[in-house]
């Protein structure tokens, strides 16, 4: 996304490389399948623990449960009523269900651990091979160094604070400034690309008994299988939060231009605001 020298407001510029666009749309599908099938897998045992082990007799730090006529999410000692959404909800056919996550949020929509595992563990390959491919390509073509890694001056607290303020006022960059990722975008993208995605893949592998035999350091890295499962879930929720903010930003910044740039690669440079 290096802006050509002639790029100016109102012009179409080539912004996203093919590798980026391809990976984006593969992930758009893959991440949703992973999230939704993951929620179904969670439904099989809707409790999270810290440490090497955790089962029904042990104390969870998070649990989605139900009573006869309510649903709740409890985190530590705090119980949040979630009747209608989590733990107690009505299916499409009008039946009361007590599974943790409701049918509209899971793949498949009706309870099936084996089917959810099949979706999850197959698409996990697409996710993992995709990120390895994208890392390699972006390292080779300079995308990481040039566009994604923050420059030292961008990391100055004053600069970050300035960006937070303009984001809060929904004043997005215009002209050629809009062609570079701002510091908040860079932090978010680098955090997902080199933080959340590797963490979610490695914690996923830590839950595999065969992987723990092959790579015992996984358990040391995450402090046990039950901890890895908890971190896996937290990382998934953070990725969901990233996606929601990402979609909101696309809507606010002009969905047509943004989506076109991710399909064709071409982006129209926003005009300067009249001020």
């Amino acid at each position: 996304m290096q802006p050509p020298p002639t790029a100016s407001a109102g012009f179409l510029v080539y912004r996203h490389r093919l590798v980026t666009r391809l990976w984006h749309w593969i992930n758009a599908v893959t991440v949703f399948v992973m999230l939704m099938s993951g929620l179904m897998i969670f439904n099989a045992h809707p409790r999270l623990y810290w440490g090497q082990y955790g089962a029904n007799f042990d104390t969870p730090w998070l649990e989605i449960g139900s009573t006869a006529d309510t649903g709740y999410l409890s985190i530590g000692n705090v119980a949040i009523p979630t009747t209608g959404v989590l733990g107690y909800w009505t299916s499409k056919d009008g039946d009361i269900q007590h599974w943790a996550f409701p049918g509209w949020a899971t793949i498949p929509s009706g309870y099936s651990l084996s089917s959810a595992r099949r979706w999850h563990l197959s698409f996990a390959w697409i996710l993992a091979l995709g990120i390895i491919g994208y890392w390699t390509a972006s390292l080779v073509n300079g995308h990481i160094r040039r566009d994604l890694l923050p420059k030292p001056d961008e990391l100055a607290p004053r600069h970050i604070w300035h960006d937070i303020k303009s984001h809060a006022r929904l004043r997005f960059p215009t002209g050629t400034a809009a062609l570079r990722y701002n510091i908040l975008q860079k932090i978010a993208y680098v955090g997902v690309l080199f933080g959340l995605l590797p963490i979610i893949i490695l914690t996923g592998l830590t839950m595999s008994p065969a992987m723990d035999a092959a790579w015992p350091w996984l358990l040391q890295l995450f402090g046990g299988r039950a901890s890895a499962r908890s971190i896996h879930f937290i990382a998934a929720m953070l990725i969901l939060a990233f996606i929601l903010v990402h979609l909101l930003m696309v809507l606010l910044a002009g969905p047509f231009n943004e989506i076109r740039s991710m399909i064709t690669g071409r982006y129209r440079v926003p005009l300067d605001r009249e001020s």
Binding site: F32, V33, M36, G103, W104, T106, I107, P108, S109, G110, S115, R118, W119, L121, S122, F123, A124, W125, S208, A210, M211, A214
Partner: peptide, 30 residues
Amino acid sequence: LLVAGCDKLDSSPAFRRTLRLGEKLSFRAQ
């Protein structure tokens, strides 16, 4: 639509066989 689509795919034995390639891949890789 996404959920309905996945449910529909899931009911096809051919699709389930395709997804099961992931199991074979995991087996061989591990």
